[in-house]
Amino acid sequence: MGTSSVVVISAGLSQPSSTRLLADKLGAAVAAGTDVELTVIELRDLAHHITNHLLTGFPTGELVSAIKAVTEADALIAVTPIFSASYSGLFKSFFDVLELGALEGKPVLIAATGGSSRHSLALEHAVRPLFSYLKAVVVPTAVYAASEDWASAGSTELSGRVGRAARQLTALMAGAGSSSTAGKSVVKDPFADVLPFGEMMRARGL
């Protein structure tokens, strides 16, 4: 297996951001275990492009390369702050503008940050179903970091989860490497398999 591409998506809004901090920790843990090329995408920088895409239906500027990177990645690390008991709107909007099939079969590590640990299950109730819908393969360990996890006492527990999630992602990627479809995007080129007219009519029962 050669170098894999892992795209890290951070939906943190502040500078510096604990979401980015967690994203970097996860990225480093994955990179420590296998030969990967990490690309970090800060959704804050793409916020205008994402809104414009929602309104016009086509990507512009840096969003074009971000979507390409995500679609072509071997695996994703997706990190969102928890807002109002769920992923942030910006995080969701980014996944809303991806093409159908962009994440199909792709290993994804999900993680989130919040002010208190009381919202940690948002990862299970909101973030995991989102990626299940998108047909991604989500690692069993989702990583949540509350404010207290950044204190020295909580940090070993967080590091443990980060390490476990990273190992699970790496294992999934290794498995994906042996199969022909997993991890590779199945975004269809709409022009690739247009049936000739007669066949198209027959196939549609017309």
Partner: peptide, 14 residues
Amino acid sequence: VYGHGPSLEDFSSQ
């Protein structure tokens, strides 16, 4: 159709 989104200048170039 495109209001409240991209700027006139951006949309004109795109």
